[in-house]
């Protein structure tokens, strides 16, 4: 009788914890949204600004759709910012300088991004270089290439902005976002491709012993990331309208911040959820947008941002993972 009670109590505790873990990332998002509704006196909810929010979250959400596969197996790619910049350059060069049709430009961007991400994957899988080091090398290569190419092209290439207004339509971006997020969610949560990534993040040796090729699935994750970065690069190019040596910079950090804000476990594994990345991306977008609209004195922005981030993370991040890690390391 007593044993059954203990069992029941443990089950209830596990259920409560799961429920909490499902709710907490939303709590951070709700908290930040309410906060900015108050301080901006509702201006953040203006129709115009909602369109801005879609535009702003587009790139990071799209890239997150791919990054989730890599981070779930415990990998990372620190090169996606400069890879995105290089993909943008190739795309704009094909369209503006070579006069090729837009779909070919998009293909060019996707190809470059997939190639760069695959190199990171290959280096970490085949050469057993830590993905952090491998991606740093690729980051230098792509940033260097971008710098040389933009210099040769006269410093920067500018898009004929009027021709590309259609790609900045909120409706088009909204549709692309829905399709990509839907597809990403399906692949990550419902198919072998996503489930195996989580399993590898949990214990890659067990996965290997189950007869599954860990290398193949890791490689596939990097290719999916490259595909998403390529598509995101195209839209980022049409949004900013110019490609220079600094294009794409900082995307890798945005992804990491989104990961933390969404409560995504840093070492991957079974606790990794697709929605964590997406929620993190949305939270970050609202944070950036809200801080600007608030009209804070610029000297205080970093301080307030830091305070908001720490409050958000303390609300949404699953610290039990950290506890497990510290227990193991002890």
């Amino acid at each position: 009788m007593e044993e059954r009670d203990i069992q029941k109590e443990l089950e209830n505790k596990a259920k409560r914890k799961e429920l909490l873990m499902n709710i907490l990332p939303f709590a951070g998002l709700i908290l930040i949204t309410v906060f900015f509704i108050i301080v901006t006196k509702g201006r953040i909810l203006r129709v115009d600004n909602l369109a801005n929010l879609v535009n702003s979250m587009f790139t990071i959400t799209l890239a997150s759709c791919g990054a989730v596969f890599v981070y779930a197996h415990g990998g990372l790619d620190f090169s996606i910012g400069s890879t995105s910049g290089l993909a943008q350059f190739i795309c704009i060069f094909m369209i503006m300088k070579l006069g090729l049709p837009v779909p070919l430009g998009i293909l060019g961007a996707v190809f470059i991004a997939m190639a760069a991400c695959s190199i990171v994957g290959l280096a970490s899988i085949k050469l057993h270089i830590h993905p952090f080091v491998a991606s740093l090398c690729v980051k230098n290569i792509t940033a260097g290439l971008l710098s040389v190419l933009t210099q040769k092209a006269g410093g920067q290439i500018t898009l004929d902005y009027s021709r590309f207004k259609i790609f900045n339509s909120v409706w088009l971006k909204g549709m692309v976002l829905v399709v990509m997020v839907g597809l990403g969610f399906y692949l990550f949560e419902r198919t072998k491709l996503g489930k195996i990534q989580k399993a590898i993040g949990g214990n890659s040796r067990t996965v290997e012993q189950a007869g599954i090729s860990v290398r193949k699935y890791k490689m596939l994750a990097y290719m999916v990331l490259g595909f998403c970065v390529g598509i995101a690069a195209f839209f980022q190019m049409t949004r900013i309208g110019t490609v220079s040596s600094s294009s794409g910079s900082g995307l890798e950090f945005d992804i990491m911040i989104a990961m933390v804000l969404g409560g995504f476990p840093m070492s991957g594994g079974s606790a990794a959820k697709f929605r964590q990345f997406v929620l993190g991306g949305i939270t970050m977008t609202i944070l950036t947008n809200g801080l600007t609209m608030w009209g804070l004195d610029v000297s205080y922005v970093s301080l307030v941002k830091g305070l908001l981030l720490i409050v958000l993370v303390s609300v949404s991040y699953d610290r039990s993972i950290m506890k497990q890690v510290s227990i193991i390391s002890l």
Binding site: R43, R46, D48, N49, N52, N55, S56, T59, I60, Q236, R239, I240, S246, S247, G248, S249, G250, L251, F253, D254, T285, T288, N289, G290, T292, M293, D297, V298, V301
Partner: peptide, 20 residues
């Protein structure tokens, strides 16, 4: 005073928000 930083995406996001 709007600080854009050095991240192109964030700079554009801040600029868009500024126009609100």
């Amino acid at each position: 005073f709007i600080e854009t930083g050095y991240n192109t995406e964030e700079a554009q996001a801040k600029t868009d928000a500024m126009f609100q």
